[in-house]
Design a protein around this nucleic acid. Structure first.
Lengths: 146, 146
DNA sequence: GTGCAACCTAAAGCTAACTTGAGGTCAAGC
DNA sequence: GCTTGACCTCAAGTTAGCTTTAGGTTGCAC
């Protein structure tokens, strides 16, 4: 881990596509940590590129920064993350993706039925009928939204 | 369309699971319209239940209110939406879902490769390698994020 | 040793999508 | 006719996730 492995914030921004201000914001929120030069400038580890990239991907999945931090908390404090550190965290992300795909499939199936029956605007709609007919099973399109 | 078909805002809230304040907000944004009683209270059509439910579903898909409004704009102004009105709009939503599922599948595939190779933390990562190795193809995990 | 881009902090501003609060009105039951 | 809960408006507040602004410092190149 020699000097050359330490990146100034601008370089990290270039590598990740993030804005410098965003990275500082993440540091503030505890999602990344930076070393400091004698002149108080931030210096990041190479491994922070992955860390930030992970944040980007997880965000796309709709996770909030707080949840992402929980995931990242599984990574080691002092040392650079190993292969299996990232494997653990990736698997967890994969589960998240699976869940989302399943939910979308469910929604799509219901929607297909709707397209067929013209639902969404009719009494016999699979999505809303329960509430609309009975008005007792709790409000809204919860059937589809889980 | 007699009197009984007109719902006060609280009833609509109950039916959709939305907060009264949220419905007022949507009206303000032009997503729903309300009739008014002589005493200036809002009265909604039954069909607004679907309209609001549609908003809820579309939101779950990550659409913003502005985009949702675009969709809803396809519905007729004066009259109650027909079967085929909703079919049109549902099909459009279905496309959106398809896109999202495809993106998630792509991300998952890449992530699977990563779990196998330990990526995310290594040089040979499929997700980041391009940038990290070449540093030229543009920043960040764009490969996966599209 | 000087210039200037890149860096620093702290605070304020921004957008989305609402909620909350203040102060007042409406309408249905007793 | 009075109480009470549901309704009204308008303005301000809230959370997330940043960006922008202002005013100042660092560090590398010439």
């Amino acid at each position: 881990m020699d000097r050359d492995d330490l990146l100034p914030i601008g370089e990290l921004a270039r590598r990740t596509g993030l804005a410098v201000s965003a990275i500082r914001y993440y540091e503030d929120k505890g999602l990344v940590q930076a070393l400091r030069t004698s002149g108080n400038q931030r210096r990041f580890l190479r491994s922070d590129i992955r860390r930030l990239s992970f944040i980007l991907i997880a965000q796309k999945l709709g996770l909030g920064l707080a949840e992402i931090e929980e995931q990242l908390a599984k990574l080691p404090q002092g040392r650079t993350p190993t292969v299996s550190d990232w494997q653990t965290i990736s698997r967890s992300l994969r589960k998240e993706i699976d869940t989302r795909i399943a939910l979308l499939n469910r929604t799509r199936m219901k929607l297909d039925e709707c397209i067929g029956c013209g639902c969404l605007s009719l009494q016999r709609c699979q999505l809303y009928n329960r509430d609309d007919r009975a008005g007792a099973a709790g409000p809204g399109p919860r059937y589809v939204l889980g």
